[in-house]
Design a protein around this nucleic acid. Structure first.
Lengths: 338, 338
DNA sequence: TATGATAACGAAACCGATTGCGTTGATTCG
DNA sequence: CGAATCAACGCAATCGGTTTCGTTATCATA
């Protein structure tokens, strides 16, 4: 595989490198005939410009960073998959970065992205660290998913998390549950916050107070859900709620696993509804009742937004809201006392 | 965030850029005292060299490509997570690339990696396309996971897939099953091939022929497993095996889901053992009997191997074999006729 | 026909690093 | 004390592109 450089192409064709560059990039300053000749030659020898050099001079790479919490969480990996597929087909290279929900790591990734002239970053993690000032002044496109901060001037795609929390809770209320617990996510997560508000709202609508109800928080991992589940089973029965809204499917999976392991039955003893609708939520034996965000759609929207804001600097800023849908499966059932 | 360049640092310190470069990279040609002064200054202003420029001149980036089939598959995402974490901590940026099991895409990723002066690539996908000649001559480190080709001169880490197939099958045989089916993976996958050989060997040891037994193949996706499961249930009962060895957990999950949906019971009607031991395999309600490869360990080994072969060109080539372990859970049970 | 405008192209600087080579100064040795 | 040696450093080329600016050729217009 011989590596062609722009100098090779220029030499072979007897023109200057500048001309080849202009011809490739569709810039004026090259005659129609010569341009065609150059493009044809480039196609024949399969010359591809070196993106590193391009970035060094031109300012931007074709790299897009996708910063997320943990790629092992199917919700993230499904999003990442579709974002990557879409953006690849548009000529970008997407770089998945696991922050592990650590603000420091997230920050250092963003710094790297800026230093390496990434064309853009998509921020998916829940934190809201000191990224604002850093990102707004820099020449880098930013798209937020399920996240926002005051004064953010880019585009974003957000699931209507308030509604998600609301419909999840309403479903349980309609089944007759009143003692409904909540397991939230990271303290500074917008998604978690809004889902909780939706939950509180739904409860309040029926005159139910949530202050003293069961409340835990998870870092979204299955293991953590498992631990919370173990502690739950250690509770006296009368202190247990009859239903719980859980911040994400993975936590719910771990939680349910602990419950069943200790002899608990779902949904007989406890109804559960969570969020994300990851693909395994629907397998038989799991059958998780959960709120779906239409991950594929979210990914595509985010990919389009970042593409747009990179390629068309004067694009209009959009804030896309994804409509969550409740998928009723088998982890919820009508309330029955005792 | 002011962007420091090496020229800034040099100017501030009143030395040449060359000296700064040499000081940073631990190369001779700088006095002890001056070197310390430079390093201190660099630390204070938090200057980080631009990797793009570095790559352009020096030849190598600190990028390592990780080419895999589909990040949505937990087996891959778990591997990717640990590889990335380890290599990050060593100063590399790992770029996850989804081939979607398409040889063409895999090829184009490898070309990209070469063109962009990636320090190395880790190949995880099952294919065996025309990568050999391309990779061997290029100045790029290569590590193979669960994959090999004749004449490959790099390091690799491979699960003992023959043994994996063997112990999976032996487990079923010991439970009294004799009519044992097999669902394999991609046709050109080494892992799939060797697991199948292990299966055949175990069967043959007991004088059992496998020629006319149930045999399907999957592309490792859950949906595909589901489809295979549906077709399975359409079979007359007497044509169904009493146990099946399935190439990976995700296929097994989909398969089992279809079985249960159609009223089948596992393990009562059908015993199943698969491979990978992804984290959800152990949740209550799934309890998949599966063969574990110690993913974390595989990842770490692979990360170390590529680091070694990048940083120490005269490294000795290693081929690490991972010992698979059977995790017996609840999808297998003794054979009972009718 | 002379003049000005415009399009097409090349020369060279530049992006931010690394590195080969040349120069300087100090040290060592005869 | 003079010469050789060597460590320490600066200069400038280089990587592979882009972009500014200047030059030349072409064409239209007066």
């Amino acid at each position: 595989m011989k590596k062609y450089t722009i100098a090779d192409v220029a030499r072979e064709l007897g023109v200057s490198r500048a001309t080849v560059s202009r011809a490739m990039n569709g810039k004026p300053g090259v005659g129609k005939k010569l341009r065609e000749e150059i493009l044809k030659y480039i196609a024949v020898v399969d010359y591809k410009p070196n993106n590193l050099a391009k970035a060094l001079s031109g300012g931007k790479t074709n790299f897009i960073g996708l910063i997320l919490g943990d790629i092992r969480n199917p919700f993230y990996s499904e999003l990442a998959f579709h974002v990557q597929r879409k953006l690849n087909s548009e000529g970008y290279v997407v770089i998945i970065l696991n922050s592990e929900f650590d603000e420091k790591r997230e920050l250092s990734y963003v710094q790297m992205a800026i230093r390496l002239n990434f064309a853009g970053v998509i921020l998916l993690t829940a934190q809201n660290g000191g990224l604002e000032e850093m990102l707004t002044e820099e020449n880098i496109a930013v798209v937020l998913i399920n996240r926002f901060w005051p004064g953010f001037t880019g585009s974003s795609v957000i699931s209507d998390n308030f509604k998600a929390g609301y419909i999840a809770t309403m479903h349980l209320l309609e089944l007759g549950h009143t003692n409904i617990g909540f397991i939230s996510g990271h303290a500074n997560s917008l998604a978690s916050h809004n889902r909780h508000i939706g939950y509180v709202q739904a409860m309040n609508n029926l005159g139910l107070k949530t202050d003293h109800l069961y409340h835990q928080s998870s870092d979204l991992k299955m293991e953590t859900g498992y631990q919370i589940g173990q502690k739950f089973m250690a509770l006296p029965k009368k202190e247990r709620p009859s239903a719980i809204v859980i911040i994400n499917d993975m936590t719910a999976l771990g939680f349910m696993s602990a419950i069943k392991e200790q002899g608990g039955c779902i949904p007989e003893d406890l109804s559960i509804v969570s969020f994300d609708d990851i693909s395994i939520a629907s397998v038989q034996g799991i059958d998780l009742t959960t709120v779906s965000h239409d991950t594929t759609n979210m990914s595509l929207k985010a990919a389009n937004l970042i593409k747009e804001s990179i390629e068309n600097p004067a694009h209009k800023i959009e804030q896309i809201i994804i409509n969550p849908k409740l998928k009723i499966r088998k982890t919820t059932r009508p309330y029955h006392s005792k």
